[in-house]
Design a protein around this nucleic acid. Sequence first.
DNA 1: TTGTTAAATAACCACTGGGTTAAATGATGA
DNA 2: TCATCATTTAACCCAGTGGTTATTTAACAA
Lengths: 114, 114
Amino acid sequence: MMIDRLSVTFSALADPTRRAILQRLMEGEGSVGELTEPFAISMPAISRHLKVLEQAGLVVRTRSAQWRPVQLNATPLAEVSDWVERYRRHWQGAFDRMEAYLAELQKGDPDAKH
Amino acid sequence: MMIDRLSVTFSALADPTRRAILQRLMEGEGSVGELTEPFAISMPAISRHLKVLEQAGLVVRTRSAQWRPVQLNATPLAEVSDWVERYRRHWQGAFDRMEAYLAELQKGDPDAKH
DNA sequence: TTGTTAAATAACCACTGGGTTAAATGATGA
DNA sequence: TCATCATTTAACCCAGTGGTTATTTAACAA
């Protein structure tokens, strides 16, 4: 399977190292070496993480001498945001109910459902 | 790895079958059999997808006779939404620039950078 | 008690993913 | 041209995933 863009994006985001890389890139582009430095894993491992991010369209790689600077491209996250938003009513409904319930508790209402 | 909640949530969402199940559950709870019916895969396979969704906290399973109705719980998506929102300026910046560029093209401005 | 039905679990298989080290590539600069 | 530096690719290992069919569990109904 794994034909759809959204699945590719979600699985790219499923790895904490890759999310940390994206967060780092919010502060500006970086070379593969710079991106490797904060982690306890090898450069080839980071290089493959970057490939996954690139295939998901989450980073762009340019070229500057023997360095290959990596830049953040957050546009695929718009799709993720849209997808998640379809569920907002549901989780917000749940939060609202929880809030109401806690408010009832606060009032010491003996009829509050437990 | 895979210790953090967000990774668990993202990888649960990375599978299209699981996302389809969540979408189906927006219309109301369903038994495992009902949830299996629309797919071309076996019930044990769906059962395991449900286990993944349950461990990610995205569904809740109750009990009713020999059925185990499954209900949507979208609350973990709030965390996903928060995470994605940190990147909104980035992708929106990109969209704005693209829009401006297209507007330049529309005007037929010969100085528009191509 | 026995049979039926819903679902989960077991055992298996093929494939993927994330890590490693070692070797290959590609641009720079002496 | 040749050595160096940054990065990628290759080859490998092990754990995890998604599917299958067969079996087990659990609740109901006769």
